[in-house]
Amino acid sequence: MSNLSSTRQSLGLVGWCLLLLVIAILGAVASINAGAFYQSLEQPAWAPPATWFGPVWSTIYTLMAIAAWLVWRPSGFGGAPIALAVFIGQLVPNVLWSWFFFVWHLGALSFANILILWGLIVVTLIGFWRANRIAGLLLVPYLLWVTLAVALNYSVWQLNPAMLG
C-alpha cells in the first residue's frame, strides 16, 4: 500500500524514467563513435557483437527505472533512503565508464570505475531486494551485464595496451 497519491506515483514513474533517459543520453553521447573504436580493438573470442549493446542497455535502463520507482513508490525517498541514494550514486560511475573507455581511452581507469560500479550495483540490488523483491529482481540483468562488462573491459584493456594505456 502506498502513502502517495496515484497522481504522485505516476509522476514518480515519469521522473525515474526521465532520470534514466538522461543517464542513457549522457552515455550515448560518449558512445557516438564507440562502434568504430570498439571494432578497431582486439577482442576476446567471447566478446558480444557491438550491435547488442544498444538494445541491452535500453532494456536495462528501463528495468532500472521501474525498479527505482517500485522502491520509491510506497513512501517516496523516505521509505528506503539508503537504497535510493546508492542507486542514484551508482549512476555516476555508470555514465563515467563510457567517457573513460570510449572518449578518453583510459583502460585502467575504466576498469577501476567499472569495479566500483559493480560493487555499487550489488549494494543497490540488496537494498532494493529488502525494500521490494521485484525491484531487486529487476536489477539482476544489470548486475549480470556489468559482470560480463567487467571481464570484457579487463580483457580488451589487456589486449590493447597501446590504445587503452
Rank of each mutant, 00 (worst) to 15 (best):
M1Y: 15
N3C: 00
R8T: 06
Q9S: 02
G12D: 04
L13R: 14
L13Y: 13
V14L: 14
C17F: 04
L18W: 03
V29D: 14
A30T: 00
N33L: 00
A34V: 00
A36K: 11
A36S: 15
A36I: 01
Q43R: 11
A45E: 04
P48R: 15
W52T: 11
F53L: 10
G54A: 06
W57F: 08
S58D: 08
S58T: 12
T59C: 08
L63P: 09
A67C: 05
L70H: 11
V71A: 10
V71D: 13
F77V: 12
F77I: 12
G78L: 09
G79A: 11
G79C: 13
P81M: 02
P81T: 02
I82M: 15
I82K: 10
A83T: 08
L84Y: 13
A85I: 07
V86T: 09
I88R: 09
I88A: 14
Q90V: 02
V92I: 01
N94K: 00
V95H: 01
W99S: 07
F101N: 04
F102P: 02
V103G: 02
V103N: 04
H105A: 02
L106T: 01
L106C: 02
L109D: 12
L109T: 12
S110R: 07
S110F: 04
L115N: 14
I116G: 14
W118F: 15
L120M: 12
I121G: 12
V123P: 07
L125V: 10
L125C: 08
I126T: 03
I126W: 04
G127D: 07
F128I: 05
R130W: 13
A131P: 09
R133H: 15
R133I: 11
L138S: 13
Y142I: 05
L143Q: 09
L143F: 13
T147Y: 10
V150L: 11
N153H: 07
Y154W: 12
S155D: 05
L159N: 03
M163K: 12
